[in-house]
Design a binder for these strands. Structure first.
Length: 901
RNA sequence: GGUCGAUUAGCUCAGUUGGUUUAGAGCGUUGCAUUGACAUUGCAGAGGUCACUGGUUCGAGCCCAGUAUCGACCA
């Protein structure tokens, strides 16, 4: 028996994690067992562990450990994502701190710095996952920028280009002026912000004092206006159809165009059209064949097209333009309004719509396939209502071609080479050269004549291949054939479109080519069969936990305070699938920062301690070679039944991805049934020994509980597993066998439940009357078929009542004893004899109240049964049940009436 | 503005084709207990017109319609 009274997570956790690693339990190689595969959502290589990671990695670890206990070949592939924009921004910032400007470096020099940074800080998060207990196959750790995965991306780009799915085009794109790169729609965060709306007048050409007034929030773009638009049916402007206006300040003539896109209600109903600087204006411009004037530089400063304030940032220039318009009298009104502003997810810069030359991937076919895969159920979502969100993302009217190029250096460089306005896409420069030489046979081209595209690919263009590329699918399909399709993907719903949908697209696009039709006909093309969506982790005010708000506790501090098992328990206990989870870390009212505390995690920590002490109790008994007593036998068969019921429940819940409920079921079983009832029932009297047989039974049950709980709380279970018995090398909980739910005797559960109710009632009486819990009382039970069966025919029932109820006698009787407190056991009268005066009148009042309540219910049942349509329409079982209710109520009422003194 | 989702105990949530007596759990809360597994404890109690209004049905927390409030995503 352990000397310590409390469980200490710290030493135990590092000891067992190291043991598991030494035994290589996490490693998987293809063999003849059935595989069970999860690929991790790769965290950013420079990231640190936060609450969201802890949540989804705990769930993944539970699934993978469960599969391992089921005897499957469990393989959890870890790795990190190069996170193009985020990492490049970090590296640029760090270089700036060191006095180095990115623009002073060559691409190669910059990449050297970036890789050095990655070596230094990269992968810290993977070590942090180990502290959480994640049983990833660390030998398989991958990185999206490592050579093999880089090569896969290049191959895929060439493949898609040759299929005609990639094209280059000048498009309106979201431009991040801080990072100076284009962003995908999904990387732009729209929030409502306060802005000003300016009313500016445009003079109608050929008049002296007729103006059309427009409303704009961006006066600095006025010099780029190429039209003024009104609604064709707006009578205010009918007289100006076909006329022209002058752009204020620069007096350039622009046409008045008519389009029903214009909202007559908004502002003055007239709109300035700036095709270079607004998505909608751009569409209008294309429709009406307008000129495009771009007055912004890549960094968001004004160029010479602006005429004024050239070189000034657009935000500052706006203020200057407002002043100038005021001076000329063209600005009529300024008012505040709230509107949606798009900011870069990574740099928080206000995103500028900008016309740029980019690479796009055609999405129509891919999106349709990906939608079909989920709608047909080949890929299942948990919870399934997530399909709605998925559908709304992928329906044809919402799908736009994917802009895959990024103006960055940290990423896979686009394998396209240019010469004379021709593009040559190839895996290597040499191949591109060969193609160019064929196209221009007379020009004697060399590598020096070709110019490679300066851009890299969007990060998601490598992560969409993750389930296939981590198994080196583009190099050698041996492993892919074993592990593909993977089983479960666990991720937050916020990257459903970024990542989940695109992996599905890639799976259906490439699995046939890589694995062959025969393979996919048999196994399917999907990258994974199930997707488990976790919610976002929010604080107590339901705000998303984020670094900038400071409302997230420090994950590592939590692990230190509560142990990995405690934190896993805490994370999970508030985590129904798909629901956002409200994590209970309190916010310090002074600093507004989250404290590294959590009652839920503490509950998990206490649970560890409870288990630890349950074992200490068992180990403290002296053992004797004697037959178990009747109470222990009854308790053991009840526990066995309950355990089997619990196994079945846990199996079902895990199967339905109700992970948190499965864990709570085990919590209640171990704490309530095992510790509070079973151990108390078998506990020998002071100084007495325990039967060896009972000890064995108890250990065997405890052992199965540890296996059941292992996926959820791996460390405490491994520790106790080894305390329960002397183990041979390799006999570890992590590789034990998941117990099978056997059929069990429901009768014994029913009988025991009735005994528990009786004990609870007796305890309640003691509580209310302040009767010492050690004072043995006498119990009499009305003789009846039911009570004979319960107390006579159920072996150990009487002994259990004597022990747990602290009774002197338990007897069947035909008459009510004197000075006894009556109550019901089932439908039978029972009497607890007290050594104190009983207020009969008060007891009668209570009994009468109970009779009244039951009569009310009886009436309801009688009414139901008296309704012919109920009897005729309701299923037979329901009617039978109502009849049984009626019989029970009547019997109880009769018993209660007989109790009235 | 569009779409979707939610509303059940003080808090966080279950509630499985509508039918199991009085709608469940965990936490919190209240009272009592305490020398030997564990105060990181035990026992017991209180706490809910299932947001509201109407409808369908023999029967509604669950289905339908509307209202209110909240949230998310999209624009």
């Amino acid at each position: 028996m352990s000397a310590a009274k409390t469980y200490s997570a710290k030493d135990v956790e590092s000891k067992w994690y190291q043991h598991w690693m030494e035994k290589n339990y996490f490693h998987s190689e293809p063999d003849d067992r059935e595989p069970y595969t999860i690929v991790i959502p790769p965290p950013n290589v420079t990231g640190v562990l936060h609450m969201g990671h802890m949540l989804n990695n705990t769930i993944q670890d539970i699934l993978i450990r469960k599969a391992r206990l089921d005897g499957r070949n469990a393989c959890w592939v870890p790795g990190t994502d190069h996170a193009s924009i985020a990492t490049e921004a970090k590296v640029v910032r760090k270089l700036r701190a060191d006095g180095i400007k990115k623009s002073d470096l060559t691409r190669e020099e910059f990449l050297e710095h970036a890789f050095a940074w990655k070596e230094e800080y990269g992968g810290i998060i993977l070590q942090q996952l180990q502290q959480l207990g994640a049983s990833c196959d660390w030998e398989r750790t991958r990185f999206t920028m490592e050579p093999e995965l880089y090569q896969a991306v290049i191959k895929v780009f060439v493949n898609l280009y040759r299929k005609g799915k990639l094209y280059r085009g000048l498009r309106m794109t979201n431009w991040d002026p801080a990072a100076q790169t284009v962003l995908s729609n999904e990387e732009v965060i729209h929030t409502d912000e306060n802005k000003n709306l300016y009313s500016v007048r445009y003079k109608v050409v050929g008049t002296d004092d007729e103006y059309i007034v427009i409303a704009t929030s961006r006066p600095e773009t006025i010099p780029a206006d190429t039209a003024l638009a009104v609604h064709p049916e707006d009578e205010r402007y009918t007289q100006y159809h076909g006329r022209k206006v002058l752009v204020p300040l620069i007096n350039r003539e622009i046409p008045i165009i008519l389009d029903d896109y214009v909202d007559r209600e908004f502002g003055t109903g007239a709109l300035k059209v700036t095709p270079a600087h607004d998505m909608n204006d751009n569409e209008l411009g294309e429709k009406h064949g307008l000129e495009v004037i771009d007055l912004l530089n890549a960094d968001g400063t004004l160029n010479e097209n602006a005429h004024f304030f050239v070189g000034m940032d657009r935000e500052a220039a706006r203020v200057e333009f407002v002043k100038k318009l005021k001076e000329t009298g063209d600005l009529l009104e300024t008012k505040g309004y709230r509107t949606s502003v798009g900011r870069s997810e990574r740099t928080n810069a206000v995103v500028e719509p900008r016309l740029t030359l980019q690479w796009f991937l055609k999405m129509d076919d891919l999106a349709a396939t990906a939608l079909g895969a989920v709608e047909s159920g080949e890929v299942k979502f948990h919870p399934d209502n997530m399909v709605n969100m998925y559908r709304s993302w992928l329906k044809p009217e919402n799908v736009r071609d994917w802009c895959v190029s990024r103006q960055l250096w940290w990423g896979q460089r686009i394998p396209a080479w240019y010469y004379n306005d021709e593009v040559f896409v190839a895996e290597t420069a040499e191949e591109a050269l060969t193609a160019a030489q064929q196209k221009f046979p007379l020009e004697n081209l060399t590598l020096a004549d070709l110019q490679q595209d300066e851009d890299v690919l969007d990060t998601w263009f490598s992560s969409w291949l993750w389930p296939m590329s981590v198994f080196d699918g583009w190099k050698d399909t041996k492993e892919l054939e074993y592990y593909y399709p993977t089983n479960d993907l666990v991720t937050g719903w916020d990257i459903m479109f970024f990542w989940v949908a695109r992996m599905i697209m890639a799976g259906y696009e490439f699995s046939d080519e890589l694995l062959g039709k025969a393979f996919t006909d048999k196994h399917g093309q999907m990258p994974f069969k199930n997707v488990y969506f976790t919610g976002m982790v929010r604080d107590e005010k339901r705000r998303k936990m984020s670094k900038s708000l400071g409302n997230s506790p420090d994950a590592l501090e939590l692990l230190k305070n509560y142990g990995a098992d405690g934190v896993r328990f805490g994370m999970l206990s508030s985590a129904a699938a798909g629901n956002d989870i409200v994590f209970d870390a309190p916010i310090d009212p002074k600093t507004k920062q989250a404290l590294n505390e959590s009652e839920l995690c503490n509950q998990g920590k206490k649970f560890c301690n409870k288990i630890f002490n349950a074992n200490r109790l068992i180990q403290s008994f002296t053992l004797a070679d004697q037959a178990p007593d009747a109470t222990a036998l009854l308790a053991a068969s009840w526990l066995e039944a309950k355990l089997n019921h619990t196994i079945a429940e846990v199996d079902r819940m895990i199967g339905e991805y109700r992970i948190s409920e499965a864990m709570m079921t085990l919590y209640k079983f171990i704490w309530g049934d095992f510790c509070s009832w079973y151990l108390e029932a078998i506990k020998p009297a002071e100084g007495e020994p325990l039967s060896k047989k009972t000890y064995e039974t108890t250990i065997a049950a405890f052992e199965r509980m540890m296996t059941l709980l292992h996926p959820f709380m791996p460390f405490i279970t491994e520790e106790v597993w080894h305390e329960l018995r002397d183990r041979a090398a390799g006999d570890d909980c992590i590789v034990s066998t998941w117990p099978t739910a056997e059929t069990y005797d429901q009768e014994i559960v029913n009988a025991f439940t009735q005994l528990q109710d009786t004990v609870s009632h007796i305890r309640d009486v003691r509580n209310q009357r302040n009767i010492n819990k050690r004072e043995a009382l006498q119990l009499f039970v009305q003789r009846s078929a039911a009570s004979e069966a319960l107390l006579g025919a159920t072996a150990g029932a009487r002994e259990f009542l004597l022990k747990s109820g602290v009774l002197a006698t338990v007897d069947l009787t035909d008459t009510a004893p004197d000075n006894a407190l009556p109550f019901l056991i089932g439908n039978d009268k029972a009497y607890l004899v007290l050594n104190e005066e009983i207020d009969t009148a008060a007891e009668n009042t209570k009994i009468n109240e109970e009779i009244k309540r039951l009569e009310g219910q009886l009436k309801g049942v009688e009414k139901k049964l008296g309704n012919e349509r109920f009897v005729a329409n309701a299923p037979e079982a329901v009617v039978a049940l109502e009849k049984k209710k009626m019989a029970d109520f009547s019997a109880k009422i009769a018993s209660l009436k007989a109790m009235l003194g």
